[in-house]
Amino acid sequence: MRAELEAIHQAGVPGVWAEVRDERGVWQGAAGDASPGVRHRIGSVTKTFTAAAVMLLVERGKIGLDTPVHGDATVRMLLNMTSGLADYRFLAFPSLLEGSAQSLDDNQFRHFYPRELIKLGVDAPRVEPGVYSNTGYLLLGRLIERVTSTTAERWITRNVIEAAGLRNTMFPTGSRIEGPHVPMYEALFGLLDPPRDYSVYDMSWVGVSASLISTVEDLNTFFAQLLDGKIVSRESLREMQKTGPVVAFDGSTVQYGLGLHRHGEFWGHDGSVWGAGTWSFHSADGKRQVSLAVNLQRWNNPAIDEALAAFQRKALRV
């Protein structure tokens, strides 16, 4: 696996690191400008944490999965991407539709409020149910706040992150990552050449949908506990694992449940924000776990795709 990580680096990714767990123990490795213990922006893997928080509130009778939240969109529909609410990213970053990266710089230190991002999404034309969208998860964050009388970030931290004993997982409190981390380079499919370091960025543009900071070790610990019924009940976990087809941002179709999606026989989530990518998948019995991070996003290089796929196959033994 160390050779496979080195191949990803040689293909063009500045830094790549991973942790793999199986019945023989724990393996950590890195290549390029990285080490296995660094903190990283995990993007939409955040959704699994938010979904777990929602399921805890369902268990406590504070929220109903089939309760409407916006129009006819229920909690379940927001969780599994079937609400038909559009994503807001091209509205918040309009230059992307014009083939320009200017919006990324314009918004680097801008603080977005969830209500303004939600408004962008709900005011946009509806999309077909089963199209990936951050809008629904920001609505779920507002719902958490309404029923707990505290911020969604604080409630998720206390009841999911701290309950799981995670020491390096946190919502950002500013535009910088505290503690050891590496630069995070955004290529935007060649629009940024060379890729630009966006490791300093105001992550309010994704909030409880995709702003968490974590490590590959913490992610493996979190998913091990989640799939073992130690964070939410096994009944809640079964609900989270009821999947349907969802079209992801890259155009691929994934089998998506309530903040979890299935990759063959494995469960987890992947994530991408400006410059940072994360991939975390786990066998249902928790005996095989793989979390991988890279510090380059939206490259236009098939060699990187091939090298990543090779590592994933070897790490998962598929």
Rank of each mutant, 00 (worst) to 15 (best):
35 S>Y: 04
36 P>E: 04
36 P>A: 07
37 G>Y: 11
38 V>T: 13
42 I>R: 06
43 G>A: 06
44 S>C: 12
44 S>L: 05
45 V>G: 02
46 T>C: 03
46 T>P: 00
47 K>E: 08
48 T>H: 12
49 F>S: 11
49 F>D: 10
49 F>Y: 14
50 T>S: 14
51 A>W: 07
51 A>D: 03
51 A>G: 08
52 A>C: 11
52 A>W: 08
53 A>C: 14
54 V>N: 00
54 V>K: 05
55 M>I: 09
55 M>Y: 09
55 M>S: 12
56 L>C: 00
56 L>E: 13
57 L>W: 10
57 L>Q: 09
58 V>Y: 12
58 V>M: 08
60 R>G: 13
61 G>D: 12
61 G>C: 06
63 I>V: 15
64 G>A: 06
65 L>M: 10
67 T>W: 08
71 G>E: 07
71 G>L: 13
73 A>Y: 07
73 A>E: 04
74 T>A: 05
74 T>H: 01
74 T>I: 04
75 V>T: 13
75 V>I: 10
75 V>M: 05
76 R>S: 12
77 M>H: 07
78 L>S: 11
78 L>F: 08
80 N>T: 08
80 N>M: 05
80 N>Y: 06
82 T>E: 12
85 L>Y: 03
87 D>C: 05
88 Y>G: 06
91 L>T: 09
92 A>K: 05
92 A>H: 01
94 P>S: 02
94 P>L: 02
94 P>D: 03
94 P>G: 04
96 L>V: 00
98 E>V: 08
98 E>H: 08
99 G>M: 08
101 A>P: 15
101 A>R: 09
105 D>I: 07
106 D>T: 13
106 D>W: 01
106 D>M: 06
107 N>Y: 00
107 N>W: 00
109 F>A: 07
110 R>N: 10
110 R>F: 11
111 H>R: 15
112 F>H: 14
112 F>E: 01
113 Y>D: 03
113 Y>S: 09
113 Y>R: 12
114 P>H: 05
115 R>E: 10
115 R>F: 09
115 R>A: 15
117 L>E: 02
117 L>C: 04
119 K>W: 02
119 K>S: 13
120 L>A: 09
121 G>T: 01
123 D>S: 06
123 D>M: 04
124 A>W: 03
125 P>V: 07
126 R>T: 09
126 R>K: 14
128 E>Y: 04
128 E>H: 11
132 Y>I: 02
133 S>N: 09
133 S>M: 05
134 N>S: 15
134 N>K: 10
135 T>R: 11
138 L>Q: 06
139 L>H: 12
139 L>M: 15
140 L>C: 10
141 G>N: 13
142 R>A: 14
143 L>G: 12
143 L>V: 09
143 L>Y: 12
144 I>L: 15
144 I>M: 14
145 E>M: 14
145 E>D: 10
145 E>C: 13
147 V>E: 11
148 T>V: 10
148 T>R: 07
150 T>V: 13
153 E>D: 08
154 R>L: 13
155 W>Y: 14
157 T>N: 08
157 T>E: 13
158 R>F: 00
161 I>C: 03
161 I>E: 01
162 E>R: 14
